[in-house]
Amino acid sequence: MERGIILSSRVRLARNIDGLPFKGINISPISAKAMEVLRTQGSYTVYPMTALSPLEQTRLVERHLISNELIDCGGLAIIRSDNKISIMIGEEDHIREQCILSGLQLKEAYGELKYIDKTLCDAMGFAYDQNYGYLTSCLTNVGTGMRASVMMFLPALTLTGSLNRCISGVTRLNMAVRGVYGEGSKAEGYVYQISNQKTLGITENDIVASVENVVNHIVESELRAREALMQSDPAGLKDRILRSYGILTNCYMITKSEFMELIAFVKLGIYYNILECSDPSELDDLIIDIQPASLCLKKGRRLDGGERDKVRASMCDVIKQTVNIKED
């Protein structure tokens, strides 16, 4: 039940090399050293932003493997072949280590990152102070340097207008609610990111526990809101779900924002047992694949808006194959 609400968990640690200024450094020796360490632990590939096309760069952002800031800074990413670990070098901090896992797995993500962090620290020596902890470029990250975030699908809280109340409660607990691509981004497809704000005066395990706690409360609220949504207008909701399914499985062209709106209703339909889906992970993959850069790279060339909308509509065949209307 929760799986559909909690999409993924991500833990990020901000680190800097001791003795070097935070800005304007040569990142080559840092990445060479990091790669030397990481190579012994798994299969990693280096992606220098300066060597990637804008499409390839955006594709990595769409998959949450890098930030937009890394592109702006001309940094570099070292990404593990399973796409769960990515190390950004030369962003706001020298090193940003990130682990992203599906569902609610913050503990596991931190566990995995802890080992990588230790080996990188042993090899490079991170800036650390007894009082301030891990030293970071921005004071908002100092201490643990940790940001634990969970991506959540919250259509019912949004549609019933309860989300603002929920955001107020969450911010009071020193947490932030953002759109799916982080700071300043829009919550497309009713997907939000919940993360800790505070990084100092709290242990890593307490950050993980507090975010998990808040997330579990939001899950309960979303489930209650889904019940309320169905009770308030069952016929209207069923109609909207089936219309969404109908458009997605019969359209010839579709924009990204329309797709994101309709797929949210298809997912709600699966939750309410109005639709049945043989493999929900196919839908999650589709949501990533229809993003503009991922879609163009799949076709092997840059496409204009209209062409993208046609390709996107054809990709909705996956919905036809995996989702069916449930017989009453």
Binding site: Y128, Y134, N174, E204
Partner: peptide, 23 residues
């Protein structure tokens, strides 16, 4: 500038002392 930035840090983090993990 450790002592002088303390009020700024306190303002942002409501704390001035790291209690998390160390290298």
């Amino acid at each position: 500038l450790g002592e002088q930035i303390k009020p700024i840090v306190r303002n942002i983090q409501s704390a001035v002392m790291h209690i998390g993990s160390s290298p």
